[in-house]
Design a protein around this nucleic acid. Structure first.
Length: 266
DNA sequence: CTGGGGACGGGGCCC
DNA sequence: GGGGCCCCGTCCCCA
């Protein structure tokens, strides 16, 4: 099952809701209070932590993103609690072309095979280089010979790997990295689209866990995982069932709860 | 079945 | 424009 993240966020704002609700002193870290990276991040973030843990923040089910809010037809099936199955089926459509970053099989021979032409490469780096031959702005892009965008039509930069299009070259280049995967782990050969993804992956080899929980001193290699863990310390979890008012630390748990039949009407 | 951790990816913002 | 980083989110696996 590919890990697709093509579904757009339904928030109007980038900032998390809890930041908006709580109006923390530093909204960037409102949800990760007392997040003290153990090593390389302390100088950067150590003074940006928030003293108060937002334990009372609860999102009513109706307010959950991607959950019960009707979406426009142009948006593929939202990963709502009732749509998990359809989500997977829908993702087999247009997104299949975009899945070079997802290793469906741990077989290394698969990993080094170009999903576009089937060419087998000897290494991830070679595969990345090869895939660059496939990834260019499509002829439909509104780029003029001088490199400037044409004003005749709305700028549209198409990815040759998938149906996605962007209105800026930078955005397209960023997207293309998810196909070319230029950042390769020297330990295991796994390739990533961005350097920081590789760094996070390398922690799985080194065992480094820069993000520690202020409540239990448990440490995590991934900030997102710490964020999820912090929910476990909260009496009232962030995701609430609209029927039974149970709260959950993760939306996925709420999804499971809903699918298990607590909310047959939902 | 539920809760939680691990690993990871994408979009977007900031510098 | 590009890199770094953050947040959100997902999937998988295990206890």
């Amino acid at each position: 099952m590919p890990r697709s993240f093509l579904v757009k966020k339904y928030f109007s704002n980038k900032k998390p809701n809890y930041s908006e609700l709580e109006s923390q002193t530093d909204k960037r870290y409102a949800v990760v209070p007392q997040c003290f990276p153990l090593d390389d991040f302390h100088s950067k973030e150590g003074d940006s932590v928030v003293p108060n843990y937002p334990s009372m923040l609860v999102w009513a089910t109706s307010a959950l993103p991607l959950t019960f809010t009707p979406v426009t037809p142009s948006i593929p099936s939202p990963p709502g609690p009732l749509d998990l199955s359809s989500q997977s089926s829908s993702s087999s459509g247009e997104e299949d072309e975009c899945r070079t970053s997802d290793p469906p099989s741990p077989d290394p021979s698969d990993r080094f095979q170009c999903a576009h032409c089937g060419m087998t490469c000897s290494s991830p780096a070679a595969l990345s280089r090869h895939q660059l031959t496939h990834c260019t702005a499509s002829p439909q892009t509104a780029i003029t010979a001088t490199g400037t965008t044409s004003t005749a039509t709305r700028a549209a930069f198409h990815c040759k790997h998938c149906p996605k299009e962007y209105n800026s070259l930078g955005a397209l280049k960023m997207h293309i990295r998810s196909h070319t995967l230029p950042c390769v782990c020297t330990t295991c050969g796994k390739a990533f689209s961005r350097p920081w993804l590789l760094r996070g992956h390398i922690r799985t080899h080194t065992g480094e866990r820069p993000f520690s929980c202020p409540h239990c001193n448990r440490a995590f290699a991934d900030r997102s995982n710490l964020r999820a863990h912090l929910q476990t310390h909260s009496e009232v979890k962030k995701y609430q069932c609209g029927t039974c008012s149970r709260t959950f630390s993760r939306m996925s748990l709420l999804h499971k709860h809903t699918l298990s039949g607590c909310c047959p009407s939902a």
